[in-house]
């Protein structure tokens, strides 16, 4: 148990030992329910065949929700990015998880990403806009430009998230690149 726990993000051997001990001390309140929840997740959670997110149903709850705007697809790099967008509560369209970003250093090419499925989805007649909410890194934006090119033959509007000064950010503490990007995107 300690070996497996120590492989989780945020855990090392020492913290894994502490967590294991804590679980063992509370078998009924923590250990048994956690084991049951893990077993449940392992047997039920799968990747959505439409957007690539995780859920117990396929298509996932977001793809299946009738109240969401199916004319807009927001493409994100990872499932964690989708959760971040959902936490904000401001986007009510559909999502698509690309599964990473193009990176020669990590050996990730276009065929390793879930881009083909995004193109297929964007080609559906009801889709009007694809928002590329990829990370503001060289790899993320290179991927965004690549997807833009792949979508160029479709009658669909392609938009990107803005880059610049974060809410609560002070110019004095921003790096030069962010200030330059903010200035370039001024309106």
């Amino acid at each position: 148990m300690i070996d497996f726990l120590s492989k989780l993000p945020g855990f090392g051997p020492r913290s894994a030992r502490r967590a294991a001990l804590h679980l063992l001390k509370k078998p009924d309140q923590l250990l048994a329910p956690l084991a049951a929840a893990l077993a449940d997740a392992a047997s039920k959670v799968r990747q959505c065949s439409t957007c690539g997110s995780f859920d117990t149903i396929d298509p996932c709850a977001i793809c299946a929700a009738p109240g969401r705007d199916e004319t807009i697809i927001c493409a994100v790099e990872e499932v964690g990015d989708l959760w971040a967008m959902e936490r904000s509560g401001v986007f009510r369209g559909r999502y698509h998880v690309v599964g990473g970003a193009l990176s020669a250093l990590d050996g990730v090419g276009p065929e390793d990403l879930n881009i083909g499925r995004l193109i297929d989805r964007a080609a559906q007649p009801h889709v009007q806009e694809v928002i590329l909410a990829l990370n503001a890194t060289v790899d993320g934006q290179t991927t965004a430009h690549y997807i833009t090119d792949r979508l160029s033959h479709l009658e669909v509007k392609v938009t990107h998230l803005a880059h610049g000064v974060p809410v609560g950010g002070e110019l004095d503490h921003l790096d030069d690149g962010t200030i330059a990007a903010a200035l370039a995107s001024r309106r």
């Binding site: 060289v138 934006q141 833009t148 090119d149 990107h160 880059h163 690149g177 330059a180 990007a181």
Partner: peptide, 25 residues
């Protein structure tokens, strides 16, 4: 420490960004 931050300048310019990536690769 950064002396010159070019990546942020070229993020919106697809041609420049792919050229920057090509140089680095």
């Amino acid at each position: 420490e950064p002396e010159r931050e070019r990546s942020a300048l070229y993020m919106r310019d697809a041609g420049a960004l792919t050229a920057l990536t090509a140089v680095a690769e």
